[in-house]
Amino acid sequence: MKFTKFIAAAATSVSLLATAAYADADHPKVGLVMKSLANEFFQNMMVGAEAHAEKRGDYELLAVGMQNETDFESQINAVNTFITQGVDAIVIAPADSRAMVRPLKRAMEAGITVVNFDVALDADAKKQQGVELAFVGPDNRQGAKMAGDALAAALGEGGKVVIIEGNPGADNATQRRLGFEDSVAEHGLNLLDSRTAYWETEEANTVFANMLTANPDIQGVMAANDSMAIGVVQALEAAGRDDILVVGFDNVPAAKALVGEGKLLATIDQFGSEMAANAIDLAIDVVRGGPELEGWVRTPIDLVTQ
């Protein structure tokens, strides 16, 4: 078996360090591939993972982040580099849920334990490539629905709401929008408008101010992340409207402060700083002979209110 693993690894890597491929399972090498470190969420995750590596002290952490959210080419390079370096496990938050399947398949063929967290790989793409891989992560749709439900409970049936969406095409943006829409449907809310503000504060401030002008009767806002919720809150202050409720997502410190002041009704914490660390724990268990992961290992999400 070792020989076939070696062949597979050699075939897919440019320069394989044969000895490194069989690192000691007592002190495994774990390659962590994240999305944009320019995103506070992944920055916290990175810090959490580094702290975790130091605390456990029984594995070596190799972490890489990307330039931006959609930079899946760098992720593919990172995965290939990790294969070459002969890591024991790759723990990855894919930037593209389809494009990453093939390189990860190569890693698995090279005998590397792969754990997919944060964003799930596309089910069809996995089937097509014949890859069986569990997903460890939060249910973004469920989280958004929790935030939406909190808003619906405060507004009551028929409440007029708008959605501020994340980047068009991003999987978590889609999941959160769907979660908000689930909530709208379940509680009979009246969805007036839904627009993207590309995850960004200033854009959300501008876009929402204009939505409010067009629909002065808005009662509630569902923002797909906290950066955008902050921009919305600021637009409400500028317009002198304190009768409109806002929910966000991510629980970044600046938003947490707004929740405390009562300017943000609720946000969602998906414990990003622990998410990578938990996925690493699961990966090391498998490397040390534990059972393979299966299906969707859901990680905790929590509604944060005042």
Partner: peptide, 15 residues
């Protein structure tokens, strides 16, 4: 002006 309007500074501002 960005800071005065939005009351935050963001390293991903201005993209």
């Amino acid at each position: 002006a960005y800071m005065a309007r939005l009351n935050i500074s963001s390293p991903i501002a201005g993209i």
